[in-house]
Amino acid sequence: MFHKIKTSKKVATTAVASMMALAPGITAASPLSNDPIRLVIPFGPGGGSDITARVLSATAPEFCGPRIDVVSMPGAAGLEAVNFVRNAEPNGHTLLVTDYGPIVTSGFVDDVDWSHDDWQPVMNFTEWLPTVYTRPDHPIQSIDDWVAAATAEPGSITFGHASPLGLVHLPLILFEMETGLENIHVPTSGGGETRSLIMGGHIDLGMTLPPSIASEVAAGELTALGIFSEERSPVLPDTPTFREAGYDVVLPAWLMIFATSDVPAEAVEHLQDCFMEALASPTAVAMSNRVNAGIEPLNAADSTVLYQNTVANIGGILREIGEID
């Protein structure tokens, strides 16, 4: 098998070599060395971030130069990955791929020795839209049903979410802050558990990200009530947003590549350019479609705006509920 890998690698390197011959400019001006680039993810292998990062690691080497490895470091609730990237040499070879949990929320609530300004976004992969869902035989089948039931009997609806203050919990808090509704928050160990509790009839509602339920919703095995975003999700075209239903609650998550702020600007720019180029290539687009990753890359400048908005938003919510002063 090692031979097999070697041969496929060999094929890949020859392909890379011929590409480079066509585009000599890229590597000649590269501020990166030949050491591999490490995309460090603060989660275990096999999840959405891992899969998305792997699309990049499979396609970007021919545009960026060096090999790209995805390294999964779930230790210390993701903080170990953040610290690993922070303590690495600031040469653009060690990058963090994360959603806002380990960097924005942790930066507020955990005792860390960095601030939000110590990070600069390189690129944004995609926006993840938190979606409320339930089973199809449940009496609540729309946002209005939910609001009506929760108003009629406050604190009667059980709502499953993964870890507290995470991507699929904060939107619920924000929604309750806006509307004054009360639900029973049931923390679960993750999306899988939330889903089995809903399907087994143990809890009423849950929150997740669209790709993980899209095919079940299309097949009528789950109902998506609404999405906390400005626009509808491309994979759930029939599911309304909460804004459409009259509640201005928008809290999308994202999956962003970060470098520490002391990485030189030309390295970040080079990485941004070659990553964007790689993700626009037909192979990457096909791969992204195949794994349902919904990759819509944003460049460094746009990502920075998004990042800073999120920092302000999350900070506001956490201050409001008294998690931080």
Binding site: A76, A77, G78, L79, E80, D110
Partner: peptide, 9 residues
């Protein structure tokens, strides 16, 4: 110890 925040594996 902040490193123990994630618990013991």
């Amino acid at each position: 110890i902040p490193e123990l925040a994630g618990g013991l594996a």
